[in-house]
């Protein structure tokens, strides 16, 4: 019994590992239903930006570096949008203790982002996020091409550089 189970598992792992070598491997956004700050249900697989890149940033009200990242980008966001057409989606993982405070905070801070509420971490789990801030970059086709955790002053410069490269059609997976 145990041997059979082990054998099946080995075959499966091998076949899956093999299938990972296929060239057409792309990671798209998983499909999870979460809400935006106006209470409207959103399917995360349908997040899009008219063929332009998307930045997805996981954050929370209790996370200082997250808010620093979002405030820092907010200062240059209009310029970024004009230059590259990029859209930033800020996904709050605050639970129902403080999720109601997210919209007043986002508005009060003058962030121009699309803000989503992942109150029970369904999207966070589907995206394999452990610690926040955790930032993803999607290319114009909606494929996840880069991710990064933590924020230090100046990290935003790397981010916009990557977006520029994506717009030029360069591969950024090596960064």
């Amino acid at each position: 019994m145990k041997k059979t189970a082990t054998l099946i598992l080995c075959i499966l792992i091998a076949s899956i590992a093999f299938s990972q070598n296929q060239e057409n491997k792309v990671k798209k956004l998983p499909s999870v239903i979460i809400k935006d700050i106006d209470g409207k249900s959103i399917n995360t697989a349908e997040l899009s930006n008219n063929g332009k890149p998307i930045i997805i940033s996981f954050w929370a009200l209790w996370c200082k570096p997250c808010q620093k990242e979002l405030s820092t980008i907010a200062e240059v966001y209009e310029d970024w949008q004009k230059e590259t057409g990029v859209k930033l989606i800020a996904v709050s993982i605050d639970d129902s203790r403080s999720s109601a405070r997210v919209k007043p905070t986002a508005n009060g801070n003058n962030w121009g982002y699309e803000v989503l509420l992942d109150v029970n971490h369904d999207f966070k789990r589907a995206m394999n996020v452990n610690q926040i801030p955790h930032t993803f970059v999607l290319n114009g086709k909606g494929e996840i091409v880069w991710q990064h955790t933590s924020f230090a002053e100046g990290s935003e410069l790397e981010l916009i550089e990557l977006i520029r490269k994506l717009n030029k059609g360069e591969d950024i997976s090596g960064h």
């Binding site: 109601a100 405070r101 919209k103 007043p104 905070t105 986002a106 508005n107 009060g108 003058n110």
Partner: peptide, 12 residues
């Protein structure tokens, strides 16, 4: 919960 917010101001 009651909230009011616009650009630059949020109250809850």
């Amino acid at each position: 919960t009651a909230a009011y917010s616009k650009k630059g101001l949020g109250v809850i």
